[in-house]
Design a protein around this nucleic acid. Structure first.
Lengths: 170, 170
DNA sequence: CTGTTTATGTCAGTGTTGTTGACACTCCAA
DNA sequence: TTGGAGTGTCAACAACACTGACATAAACAG
């Protein structure tokens, strides 16, 4: 909980970082930063006639190879129709392969092909370059704070997905 | 820089926070957090048959009353056609008024009506509640780091818009 | 075995938000 | 007066989300 530590003011809990003005600036920072965050991969994707949805699918299939459609659905938070449209193009373009499950044959396990890995690398390199520069400029303490606040901002289920990915890669 | 490490050169400070794994986690944190960030206002907007574009327009008109269409265009980073569609509905629904400029009559200055202010409050209260909770849980130092990293992640023009809004409210 | 649930895929329709391109109008400034 | 800037509108289109309905196959529960 907030105990005011690290505050520059004296005397009791300084909660100045919780003023509406501060919160509004946080809101706007999220808005403008997210634009930057997606800008670089977006530029690559337009040339390939893909969109952000393809990027997200490729990212998480790479992150958790063999993940099922249902799992991906939960992570991405979209409908199966919406995801299916994206997966169909990725599969028919040879970037993703779908394997019938061994234990449960209803399930489809998703993997990137070599071409899929190549695209994932291209996209994540572009995105990481910006984040690396931002992290480097901000320094490790700021990065820790950045992650702390973002985690606190997630919906609980999303935080769970995030943590499980972070810790176990599923 | 595809060495998979981002590790430091000789001797100095540990740069473990710049590993590809750390950057990937930062990427995923942005993705999941942004979902949370928009979730609460989105729930309100669906009932009103509005979308995020309306929210953004209302937010920035409230933030900089009397702003011109062109200024708003630059801040939002969309085409005038796209913004115009949104503004048209907001104006015809009585949430926004457009006043012909006094000095330059080509310009339209945008203001929220009372109804517009009411919607803006409703939306920003919902959004701020989550951010306030996240800020409070994370503490002031984390919040400072959060803002530092986000600012470093913006495109330079967006950082300029962000800073000018923050400092002068235009 | 039968009936139900789960996992997936697909078709059709709709809505929001973004894009280009084209055109018109007003007004300012040179 | 002419050129350009700011604005508004029309048309067409694409990406990506949604709902609803339906089909198939496999797993599971009785």
């Amino acid at each position: 909980m907030a105990d005011g530590r690290g505050s520059s003011t004296s005397g009791g809990e300084s909660l100045l970082f919780l003023t509406d003005e501060q919160l509004r600036q946080g809101t706007e920072a999220m808005f403008f930063a997210y634009r930057g965050f997606t800008a670089d991969p977006d530029r690559i994707l337009v040339d390939l006639a893909y969109g952000r949805a393809h990027h997200r699918a490729v990212h998480f299939i790479n992150r958790a190879p063999g993940t099922t459609v249902n799992n991906l659905l939960n992570i991405l938070g979209v409908t199966k129709q919406s995801l299916n449209r994206v997966l169909r193009t990725l599969i028919s373009d040879g970037l993703v392969i779908s394997k019938v499950g061994r234990n449960d044959k209803r399930e489809r396990h998703l993997y990137l092909t070599d071409d899929g890995h190549a695209l994932e690398q291209k996209l994540s390199n572009a995105q990481r370059a910006r984040m690396r520069a931002a992290f480097r400029d901000a320094g490790p303490d700021a990065v820790a704070g950045f992650r702390t606040v973002l985690e606190a901002m997630m919906d609980p289920e999303m935080r769970q997905s995030y943590t499980r990915l972070k810790e176990t890669g599923t």
